[in-house]
Write a protein that binds this DNA or RNA. Structure first.
Length: 344
DNA sequence: TCCGCTGACACGTTTGAAGCGT
DNA sequence: AACGCTTCAAACGTGTCAGCGG
């Protein structure tokens, strides 16, 4: 774990996971996140507290999900087992916090979260693409990333571990309908003819087509990782996260300063969809290139990381990673073209 | 036959418009 | 007329299950 400060502005930026206890509860069992074609929100969602930022310097916060390894897994005999090679990795998509860019004081006054981040295994929802009318680029002074080992999770299309289901039902208000009296029995639903006519609902595709609320980040296959971040991530894996395995140290704050990168895209959204289940080549190459929005980044990222030990060897995990990017001067920012900017 | 994914379902929560009172 | 509060239905998010397809 390392921290590299901005060359001109010695950094003491810290990022801590807000709902760490909840994450830890899930993590100790082996967090699972359901993904669907249309996108499913995470629970727990990512929420972090930031400190040490320059009060009047603008930052952008981003979050990524990165597969741990090149395998896919199946739940067998109360544990995950390798079930073959992973499917091709989809384009990496980065979620930018909609408040970005914002001054450090804004980020530090309250925890920031990504409650509307959705996980999907659909790689064809192209309507989420946001096209920038005026591509522009910025030189970033530095990039700092933070990883949180306890946010690692396994992406599933249906829950496998009943302990996870119970934990989610206990903590997620939206799942309260399943809390008491067990789950709604199938027989109950088989009785059919519910007195309640099905509400006409917008097809999500239609909804998304007509609204910018769901947008996909530009893709890149150039995401690379430095030795440092790799080492950091590797280290985070050693603790494991499955039941019975040793827990990692407290939310890590491994910080990686990235070389300046020019990227040209604009992305902001109410809800952003990120791929969650597709393993990708782990720890490959460098970390130098990264898909950044053309505004200042400041972010949280999720990394899938390799199974920490033999017991959890089959478990694809995701580790949250946050990225900071800062404008050194307001002048830099003023030179930027108008952003598409949405709020959650 | 097995297994994974998808869509339908029922229920609770959230949200915002409409109605009402001050 | 303006503002604030309450009510309620629509929209949304959830986990489970059957059915389909590979």
């Amino acid at each position: 774990m390392s921290l590299l400060a901005h060359p001109y502005q010695p950094s003491d930026i810290r990022m801590t996971l807000e709902n760490a206890d909840l994450w830890q509860s899930f993590h100790s069992i082996g967090t699972e996140m359901v993904i669907t074609k249309h996108g499913r929100r995470m629970f727990p969602h990512c929420s972090v507290r930031v400190s040490g930022l320059q009060l009047f310097t603008n930052y952008v916060i981003m979050m990524d999900i990165i597969p741990v390894d090149g395998f896919k897994y199946k739940w067998k005999k109360e544990q995950w087992e390798i079930a073959g090679a992973a499917d091709p990795h989809p384009p990496c998509r980065t979620c930018t916090h909609p408040d970005s860019p914002a001054p450090g004081r804004h980020w530090m006054k309250q925890p920031l979260s990504f409650p509307k981040l959705k996980l999907t295994n659909n790689t064809l929802d192209q309507f989420h693409v946001v096209q920038a009318d005026n591509p522009y680029s910025l030189r970033w002074g530095s990039l700092q990333s933070f990883s949180f080992p306890e946010t690692a999770f396994t992406a599933v299309t249906a829950y496998q571990n009943p302990k996870i289901t119970k934990l989610k039902i206990d903590h997620n208000p939206f799942a309260k309908g399943f809390r008491e009296g067990g789950t709604h029995s199938h027989s109950k639903r088989l009785s059919n003819k519910s007195p309640r006519a099905k509400r006409p609902t917008l097809d999500r595709d239609d909804l998304s087509n007509s609204s910018p609320s769901l947008q996909r980040m530009p893709s890149t296959s150039q995401f690379t990782q430095t030795e440092e971040s790799r080492a950091s991530t590797q280290q985070s894996l050693k603790g494991g996260h499955l039941s019975g395995s040793a827990l990692e140290p407290k939310p890590s704050e491994s910080i990686h300063v990235e070389p300046l990168v020019l990227r040209e895209y604009n992305c902001s959204s109410d809800e952003q969809m990120v791929p969650a289940s597709m393993p990708y080549q782990p720890y490959r190459s460098e970390y130098g290139m990264f898909p950044y929005p053309s505004r200042d980044p400041d972010g949280a990222q999720i990394f899938l990381h390799p199974p920490p030990n033999s017991r959890s060897a089959a478990e694809p995990c995701i580790q949250q990673h946050g990225y900071f990017h800062q404008y050194n001067t307001t002048a830099d920012w003023s030179q930027s073209p108008v952003l598409s900017y949405t709020t959650w």
